[in-house]
C-alpha cells in the first residue's frame, strides 16, 4: 500500500502530460480489477465477437422477438435454452460464484 501512495505522489509532480498519462494508466490502483486499464481491450474484443454472434443469430431482430412471444418460431427458445445449458455446464464452482453475486 505504501508503495502505491508513493507512486501517486510521484505522478502528481510529473509535469510532462504524456508521461503523466502513461504513469496513470500503469499505476492507478484498481482494487476491483487488479489489472491496468489498457487491459480492457480484451473486453472490447470479446464484445466484438459477441456483437457478431448477436447479429448473425438474429436474436437482435424485432421479427424474431415477435415470433418468440407469439409462439410462432422455436429459434429464440433454442438460442436462449442452449446458451443457458452451455453456460451452466461451463461455469465451475457455482456456490463460490453465488457468494460473490454482484452487479452485472
Amino acid at each position: 500500500m505504501s508503495t502505491e501512495i508513493k507512486i501517486n505522489q510521484t505522478q502528481f509532480h510529473i509535469s510532462i502530460p504524456i508521461l503523466k498519462y502513461a504513469l496513470k494508466i500503469q499505476c492507478v490502483n484498481q482494487s476491483e480489477l487488479d489489472q491496468p486499464l489498457w487491459q480492457n481491450w480484451k473486453y472490447a474484443v470479446a464484445g466484438i465477437v459477441f456483437g457478431i454472434f448477436l447479429v448473425k443469430s438474429e436474436v437482435v431482430s424485432w421479427f424474431r422477438i415477435q415470433e418468440m412471444f407469439r409462439f410462432q418460431s422455436f429459434h429464440m427458445y433454442g438460442v436462449i435454452g442452449s446458451a443457458v445449458v452451455v453456460g451452466i455446464i461451463s461455469v465451475p464452482n457455482h456456490q463460490t460464484l453465488q457468494d460473490q453475486n454482484t452487479g452485472r
Binding site: 448477436l54 443469430s57 436474436v59 433454442g78 438460442v79 442452449s82 452451455v86 453456460g87
Partner: peptide, 9 residues
C-alpha cells in the same frame, strides 16, 4: 448461435 453465446459466460 446458442452454444456460442453460452460460451461468452
Amino acid at each position: 448461435a446458442g452454444p456460442l453465446i453460452g460460451l461468452m459466460v
